[in-house]
Amino acid sequence: MFSKTLHISTSPHIRQGMSTDMIMRNVVYAMLPLVVFSVVSFGLNALLVIITAVASSVLTEHALCRWSGKSSTVSDWSAVITGILLGLTLPPIFPLWMTFLGGVVSIAIGKFVFGGLGSNAFNPALVGRAFLQAAFPVAITTWHPSFLEGRFYSISKSVAAFPFSTPVVDGISGATPLSAFKFDKVTADTADLAFGFISGSTGETSAVLIILGGIYLAVRKMMNWRIPVAILTTVFVLSWILHIIDNQVYPSPEFMLFSGGLMLGAVFMATDMVGSPITPRGVVVYGVFIGLIVVVIRIWGGLPEGVMYAILLGNALTPHIDNLIRPRVYGTKKTKS
């Protein structure tokens, strides 16, 4: 990246210290503990799901670049991130052929048709997941208990389902804390939620590891910390108010904060640089909006979890937020837009 020759140029002098692939690589580092933890808690199944998601994303990116006659953009690591994020949002015994399809949809429809990295309106991994959710609603809500005996050497029949065939569930399935709450009004213990001793998508269970990853990225200034803070604060405050109004009907704010994909979504998905607003104030509006939608879907909606749709809606709102909230150019008067 850096040449030894001395550059002489007129102002402004911009030195770009961080390149895309460097940021992306660090995001991958921040997610690695999550991948490891998901393999520890869900075993071989989760590993296969994540590897398949990454492989299909990278392959699709490479193939599409080749097909459209561009040079391959695989080396910027963004396809790897999309693959890992997709893998982390899927249930641990999700069939591999569906996972592969999800990776293809993420990259092809979520990213490539918009013009590749930087032009995509929505988070590609979430586009892929939304497609899978609508296409295979049964498979994507078939959960699996964590920390089962023999998880490191046995593969679930569901994971190994033959391409295009219906997965067979081996009989062990576990409800996530959120669906247990939605349908049976049972809430889980906060400590279990925080450390990840629960059922759920492969990478969403351990809130603590997600927060650590987020802190790493925030300290290295590779992530806008305002986004997760705005989302989590909104969810906390709203569910706290509701909990005070009626603590029988509405769950506690800690439960809302640590359950489901909220942490994963707030830290790693809503912060996607392409799909989030630029200005600090815009970012806060974006975060509050996502938090609000999450609470509305979880409490009053038909689905147990709404983080995915909330972030996709937030992505859709981003251009409008950026349009409405513009910083004043130095030396000019504020104009009414």
């Binding site: 569906m98 609508a134 296409a135 295979f136 498979a139 065939s165 219906t166």
Partner: peptide, 14 residues
């Protein structure tokens, strides 16, 4: 029989 239908295709999004 074992074919897994892609439900999304009969939904409006499909």
């Amino acid at each position: 029989e074992s074919f897994q239908e892609w439900i999304i295709m009969i939904l409006p999004a499909g």
